[in-house]
Design a protein around this nucleic acid. Structure first.
Length: 425
RNA sequence: GGAGAGGUAGCGAAGUUGGCCGUAACGCGCUCGACUCGAAAUCGAGUUGCGGGUUAAUAGCCCGCACGUGGGUUCGAAUCCCACCCUCUCCGCCA
């Protein structure tokens, strides 16, 4: 969310930000609505001031035992008028709010302009894709051969875009999650958190999932509860409404949670396998940063996510999302893409964003600077470290052998009871 | 789910026959100052947020709103009425 004052005082800045995002949102509509809002507010507050003064006079008269009925009678119409104007002003203020809530974050100046994903520049590549001397299988076929992935039973239990995992493959996914949590907490200083995976509407609004993207998430019937699409939502909102200590910044949380996404609008996309599921596990990293240094934190965060791929010895590349491909709340985003041999391409496995003060303003997360008295909004960052399901795909496909077995990456063997190879059965 | 108690500043807490009580008593904490070589103790002062107006100003001043949330009654609501949320105690149920 933009600062109301910025949009008022520097509408051109907002126009340019929206133009860089190729957004059709009209700033003039805001200026018109906000002008109307202030006009009505001035009118209604003047009347309220009158009423308060008169009420004080009534009190004074009554305290002295006088008769205030004449004055009281003259006030009844005033209250009616105030009620009407209040409703009108409230309606306009709600529209202003609606407009503000629908505006995406401004891209940082360092973000390249682009129309869509085809314009995302590559930052760097790490690791060489392995050369196979046999026809590679994709993770669906490998998973079937290992008796580890079952889509038919998942469809029977629930529906499309779900999976059942068995045996060593189920354990491999658990091993990946444990491994990721251990690296992030022990080596990168994150505090492990086990948050609710059901959150309320205010929480979903704080990080920017609502009100605009309701159709992307699942909501429980007869309640105000939503299934989280990512642990970014509970972790970032953890300090909603709080004033943090400046000396505590920066700090980070990590959590291993299921994530739930309706995947509305992606029909026919990635229908094979577990690349795009309605439910998947993710180890999420969230950082609360000082606004003066949050872009340094973004580089750190990206490194923390990259470390997992490096330790698993998976080839990957990093791209910088262009203005046209960035998420709603982000000012700058790096995507980590892992090499999938069966698809002969790199696929997203982590997205690391600096949301600057965009979420902090919505969720009201501030800190008190040592110098100066005004509280400031913190900057919030988030990134996957990593998407566990997609990492499982990458391990299966990159570590496959000719006979359909899969070598367990060295980093994961301690988490697999020393198992070195998962054999077909 | 049932019964009861409660939700007021950073924390504790006062205020319920409706009216200078919300820039919110009192206490703690915090900030500044005095005293001191320095500190403690003591003394003094200060210490909510958001919105609007004025303004060069995110300075000052004026106004409005906020006592869990949303409504209602009233000239006027922390105070009365209704609904909902959360916390605590007990009971019931339960992994």
């Amino acid at each position: 969310m933009f600062d109301l004052k910025i949009v008022q005082s520097d509408p051109d800045f907002v126009r340019q930000a929206l133009a860089r995002r190729n957004s059709p949102i009209d700033v003039d509509e805001f200026l018109r609505l906000d002008g109307k809002r202030r006009e009505l507010l001035l009118e209604v507050e003047t009347l309220k001031s009158e009423r308060n003064k008169a009420s004080g006079q009534v009190a004074a008269i009554k305290r002295q035992g006088g008769d205030a009925s004449e004055l009281i009678g003259s006030l009844s119409g005033l209250s009616e008028r105030i009620k009407e104007l209040d409703a009108e002003a409230g309606a306009v203020a709600a529209k202003v709010d609606e407009w503000l809530m629908a505006v995406p974050n401004a891209p940082d100046a360092s973000v390249p302009y682009g129309k869509g994903e085809e314009d995302n520049p590559e930052l760097h590549r790490r690791g060489e894709p392995r050369v196979f001397d046999f026809p590679v299988k994709d993770h669906v076929d490998l998973g079937a051969g290992l008796a580890g992935l079952d889509f038919e039973r998942a469809a029977r239990l629930t529906g499309a875009r779900f999976v059942v995992e068995f045996g060593a493959v189920a354990r491999l996914e658990r091993a990946l999650a444990q491994f990721m949590l251990d690296v992030q907490t022990r080596e990168h200083g994150y505090t492990e958190v086990s948050p609710p995976v059901l959150v309320n509407t205010a929480t979903m609004t704080g990080t920017g999932q609502l009100p605009k993207f309701a159709e992307d998430s699942f909501k429980l019937e007869n309640s105000d509860y939503w299934l989280i699409p990512t642990a970014e939502v509970p972790l970032t909102n953890m300090h909603a409404g709080e004033v943090l200590e400046e000396s505590a910044l920066p700090f980070g949380y990590c959590a291993h949670t299921p994530c739930f996404r309706s995947e509305a609008g992606s029909y026919g996309k990635d229908t094979r396998g577990i690349i795009r599921q309605h439910q998947f596990y993710k180890v999420e990293l969230v950082r609360f940063a000082h606004p003066d240094s949050s872009f340094d934190d973004l580089e750190l965060l990206r490194g923390h996510a990259e470390a997992i791929l490096q330790k698993l010895e998976l080839p990957y590349r990093v791209i910088t999302l262009c203005t046209g491909d960035m998420g709603f709340s982000s000012a700058k985003t790096y995507d980590l893409e892992v090499w999938l041999p069966a698809q002969d391409t790199y696929r997203e496995i982590s997205s690391c964003s600096n949301c600057t003060d965009f979420q902090a303003r919505r969720a009201n997360i501030r800190f008190k600077p040592a110098q100066g008295k005004k509280t400031r909004f913190v900057h919030t960052l988030n990134g996957s470290g990593l998407a566990v399901g997609r990492t499982l795909v990458a391990v299966l496909e990159n570590y496959q052998q000719k006979d359909g077995s899969v070598v367990v990456p060295a980093a994961l063997q301690p988490y697999m009871g020393g198992l070195e190879v998962i054999e077909p059965r």
